[in-house]
Design a protein around this nucleic acid. Sequence first.
DNA 1: ACGCCAATAGCATGAATATGCTATTGACAA
DNA 2: TTGTCAATAGCATATTCATGCTATTGGCGT
Lengths: 210, 210
Amino acid sequence: MATTIAIFDDNSRLRETLTVLLGGVEGYSVCGDYENCAQAAGIIKQHRPDVVIMDIDMPDVDGIEGLRIIKEQRPETYIIMHTVLEDDDRLFQCLCGGANGYILKNSSFVHLLEAIENVLHGGAPLSPIIAKKVLQFFRPTNPGRLQYHLSDREREVLKYLVKGFSYKMIAGHCHISLDTVRGHIRNIYSKLHVNCGREAVTKALRDNIL
Amino acid sequence: MATTIAIFDDNSRLRETLTVLLGGVEGYSVCGDYENCAQAAGIIKQHRPDVVIMDIDMPDVDGIEGLRIIKEQRPETYIIMHTVLEDDDRLFQCLCGGANGYILKNSSFVHLLEAIENVLHGGAPLSPIIAKKVLQFFRPTNPGRLQYHLSDREREVLKYLVKGFSYKMIAGHCHISLDTVRGHIRNIYSKLHVNCGREAVTKALRDNIL
DNA sequence: ACGCCAATAGCATGAATATGCTATTGACAA
DNA sequence: TTGTCAATAGCATATTCATGCTATTGGCGT
């Protein structure tokens, strides 16, 4: 039986192109192409594709969400992210979401074909730049990992925020005034580009800045 | 000037073969081959090779140690691990040690050449099986799941809390009243045994309940 | 038909948080 | 020596949050 492929991408021209090209390959069959992941769960349940080509930036339900949805629904589906170069945070989320490969959109069609063959044989196709970034995530002391230039004190305060301490408790533990705590948190928010504690906690945990 | 390469491998026959083959490639020059990493620091200081081909299993000072030594001595050296399939722990150590690539010994010489070209162009060559294992390191272990008996709505609200939405925004997105949002959050706190939003976010992310 | 519970909604209130300013001190680099 | 910056601290204020109650509705299982 043919290898079935589903395509998620909000660019309809690209979807068409990929559908035609992939459909023309011996042994491949495109079982559907979609502009976002809103119906992903149902689509995967119905078609059970072997491989999913997944864009990231899509309206409503994006590719990161889609990845999670599909992997939850049917973990054995091979998902190849196919997107422009995204920020490290998104790449990280893709990796943690269980993506089976990550190919940049500026790669040739041949590379995409190779990537599909690769996952089908148990490999993990990564564009060179992506592979490099992936390795950089492992470096404890590295320039690729997200660094927000928090001071020691700010990191300490952030740690308490993650623990759910109130400002008052933080002030007590750090032996500083409530207003100083406020000051540090103000700076933390500014550096992390967030504007409430919960968002700061999310960023701290996701980006591992403890 | 030629790209200079140093080879560390305890198999003398393989060292010879690689030296001859690589030395025969236009633009490459092997500046030395060694049976372990005991003298690695001195060797790198003296020869300053562009690329190091590094075996792992070697007597006395192995490739993992060698990797650390060389990266400490001269971080800009590209190091390609070249070894049989090792256990995950060693792979992890290589990644954290700053290896620039990881090629299995059962790969063809052509693949090794491609790998060298790849690192020289800022990529990160990984054998398919290795790439797959690398991606697996990112998979969070998710046995927990549904342990807190949150309802669908509560899970949805929690998701927004993680995103840092205010109650008002959540109410808007869910098309329910502010007071209902409060009610859900009240229940979420109770079920998660927390008493503020930041703590709930921490628990949600750490326990993977999204 | 009955009870259970999720989802909805309202009201009230004190505590906590977010954010607008300013200002001093000490360390360290240009 | 001057300038930058982290750490400290204060004040004011508007908003948000946490939590105490109660109450209606619709679904689901027995």
